[in-house]
Design a protein around this nucleic acid. Structure first.
Lengths: 356, 356
DNA sequence: ATGTTTTACACAATCGATTGTGCGACACTG
DNA sequence: CAGTGTCGCACAATCGATTGTGTAAAACAT
């Protein structure tokens, strides 16, 4: 290994000053060549070619911090999500990243663990790194974040949970929950005259969070229009944790003596918790019960009993969010993206054939 | 809104020069106060307090690009993964991020979509941003990446798929697959004398990829030690896509006229593809078949038929990777982390009671 | 040969923070 | 009161790239 390589890897990275010295030109010329502006700066093609070769030989990569400092643009774009380890948010993140790369931007995705304090710290950090805009998904305190972004003059869009001081892209939670509720409560009508008749329940989430509130509103409306009278105990907002959900479903089943005829689970984590109770129930228990879940997991559509699921269109949500940024929208308008109802694909030959 | 605020948000962000002017001190003093080194620099407490107040009032956040440029440290740490939208990698990403935050570092997670070209571009980008170290998970071309990192003098650790020129943390794929294969092939012994007797199959992945190769090795060894003779057609490495897997399982079932007695699925995506075929099969088809899957999805453990799953310990893998970085290990040693066998939790009362 | 353009660069200021060094003012010592 | 320290800060160089401007040399025109 030549001494120069030794030195290079032991010392600092190669800079335009090194390349200038080696190629016998000036830093500004190297800069122009490396960033592609060399034609406008009337650099001879042979000079450019030579510099490019030297750069390649020395494994030069530009220092983007220096560039960012000078140009007051970092080339990074930020997104915050509650957790990576969740199908919906992971999917949002993936779309965010794909769209960023198409635009030659470097995506930075950070998770807040739904902690309001951490959330603020992270936004401050991203501001400090001079991200060019920010997508905020599932924020616990949207307006505080808007204020931070405002002070830093940072364009931002809320995704999933809307904010009051910036544009938002959300799922049409009302419509999604409406469709889902119809699916799981429709069978009740058919069974009106049968001996089995219990109510339809909504389980999970925090009633105070915007998305859940909308879903509950839709649920309530559909139940009421079915002619069934709606009672407050049909909403069990026990949070999102599997454990809480497991306890809640157990209490419910014990109280009503069976599974409810309809059950809308407000998230996959809630569903997961519920499953750990269902595992103790005999197969017959599900005969007269219809389950729905807001959010989607492929395997959950293959369970022993049919499950209707709602899949949010994360890619379109992100596409819309980019549109808002690129159209420089700052008004707090809300764009709603349609969610999709996914039918069960349970292995019950002849019963569910909605599968393509 | 006061004019000063107007100007601030219309123009550039507040800098230490602004704060210096406003507070009647110098930029270096402000700098010392803001980064906490003010005691060593013998700044009076009252001065520090005053500057802090001014900074807070003006919503000052340090320009980390400038700091990074000066200190030749960005405070960012990088990780690349194939995709976000995958339980295992999402989980790795989440752990990576949690550990980074504990150390006050800013995590940047990028996905490569398993594209070797994109992979290299992304590593170059992260090097340009001066990340302080890099975790590389599921690389398609580890050694090319090592070379890039070497040129930039960037510490890095391979995760999941090992590299030859840097330390690695992987799952003990051999042991995981061994345990899993035992589970799904054990019932065959019991059935030795019954009329039903087909072979155990391994489905999915690329035989050339390191993790899959190890799993296949373990699978082969266990099958052979069972006394059954192993045949080449028992390995069907059809890649990872659900579609390919669906086609492959259909062909297999058609050929042998039933489900195989044992089936090891090499990833969740493969499993997903297989499910779309299974959905057409009658319940009885699963009576004499045992399914296993390398990787874990909670809902997949609740399917109509029992599924044995392997869950990789992503958090420990990341913890080990941080250890390697912090101990400044650069030798290509490989640390293997134990994966966990997750028993089925199928709703078959009395048959599977391994559930806690 | 002289004046005018054009070519092909080099120079130097700049972005915002960090950090080694310098120095006036005050306290303290003898 | 001169000498020595200490305190509390300000100054200025620096990190690596960008970019407005200056300017020799070559090309061209007269």
């Amino acid at each position: 290994m030549p001494a120069s390589t030794q030195l290079r890897s032991k010392n600092r990275k190669t800079t335009i000053y090194d390349l200038a010295r080696i190629s016998g030109t000036s830093p500004s010329t190297v800069s122009a060549v490396m960033n592609g502006s060399w034609r406008e700066r009337r650099i001879r093609e042979s000079t450019a070619l030579n510099i490019k070769q030297v750069a390649a030989k020395h494994g030069y990569t530009p220092n983007l911090q220096a560039r960012g400092l000078r140009k007051a643009r970092s080339g990074m774009v930020g997104m915050i999500i509650p957790v990576h380890d969740n199908r919906f948010f992971a999917s949002l993140g993936q779309s965010f990243e794909n769209h960023a790369r198409e635009r030659d931007l470097c995506p930075v995705i950070a998770s807040t663990l739904r902690d309001p304090v951490e959330e603020i710290r992270i936004v401050k950090t991203l501001i400090s790194y001079a991200v060019e805009f920010l997508f905020i998904a599932g924020a616990t305190n949207p307006d505080a974040l808007s204020e931070l972004c405002g002070a830093a003059n940072l364009p931002h869009v809320f995704v999933d949970l809307p904010g009051k001081h910036a544009p938002s892209v959300t799922t049409n939670n009302y419509l999604g929950a409406e469709l889902l509720t119809r699916k799981i409560s429709a069978p009740n009508k058919a069974r009106k005259n049968s001996s089995i008749k219990t109510k339809t329940y909504f389980l999970g989430g925090n009633a105070s969070d915007h998305a859940t509130a909308q879903r509950i509103a839709a649920f309530t409306a559909v139940i009421s229009e079915n002619g069934d009278k709606f009672e407050a105990d049909q909403i069990i907002s026990c949070g999102y944790s599997p454990d809480k959900a497991a306890t809640a479903i157990k209490i419910l089943c014990d109280r009503i003596g069976s599974l409810p005829s309809g059950l809308l689970l407000n998230s996959l984590t809630v569903f997961e918790g519920v499953m750990s109770h269902f595992v103790h129930l005999p197969a017959e228990a599900f005969e007269h019960s219809t389950i729905g879940c807001y959010d989607y997991d492929p395997f959950a559509t293959f369970l022993k009993f049919p499950v209707h699921m709602v899949r949010q269109n994360s890619d379109e949500m992100i596409a819309r969010a980019y549109e808002l940024i690129e159209r420089k929208v700052t008004d707090p308008l809300v764009i709603e993206v349609q969610a999709e109802l996914i039918p069960p694909r349970t292995i019950h030959k002849g019963r569910y054939r909605e599968l393509g």
